[in-house]
């Protein structure tokens, strides 16, 4: 099986930008549809990418989403420059959220984003260092 990377895209994600928040995921979706990826797989990728993107918008100082497309899978890196997650196990629990009042009024802060990402992906890795960064790696296979 060929394992070369076919395509790589990178989108900046800006802290607090609720208007453009979601655009990285939308652009990625268009690309995947053009490549003819199965629609149920595209949906899982969209859910994971959107939640990762909005977490950067809501919880971080900003970062980026990078997607690498191989012929059998997609690998998404969601990276931001902090503030980081002190307790990852706690953050992964359904319902746990530190979202601000403003974000909650907008319908964020259900504490479902990270669990959604985990459920939607075939492989999911999260690393973080307080004051430095949070990094998610999401792998979803196409078949």
């Amino acid at each position: 099986m060929l394992m070369e990377e076919l395509l790589s895209v990178k989108y900046d994600v800006i802290s607090g930008d609720f208007i453009r928040g979601g655009e990285a995921s939308s652009n990625l979706k268009k690309l995947l549809n053009q490549l003819g990826i199965r629609s149920d797989v595209v949906k899982r990728i969209c859910v994971a990418c959107y939640e990762a993107e909005m977490n950067i918008v809501i919880h971080s100082v900003g970062g980026y989403i990078q997607a690498k497309i191989y012929n059998d899978r997609i690998e998404i890196i969601a990276y931001d420059n902090g503030p980081g997650i002190p307790d990852i196990e706690l953050a992964m629990q359904e319902g746990y959220s530190t979202a601000s009042e403003i974000a909650r009024e907008m319908g964020f802060g259900g504490g479902m984003g990270l669990p959604n990402i985990k459920r939607s992906s075939d492989e999911f890795y999260i690393t973080s260092e307080v004051g430095k960064y949070t990094k998610l790696k999401i792998i979803i296979y196409f078949d």
Partner: peptide, 16 residues
């Protein structure tokens, strides 16, 4: 059906 009115609802609707 939602009472949310900010632009992000369009992103959600479009992705789904």
């Amino acid at each position: 059906i939602t009472v949310q009115i900010h632009p992000n609802i369009v992103a959600v609707a479009s992705l789904l």
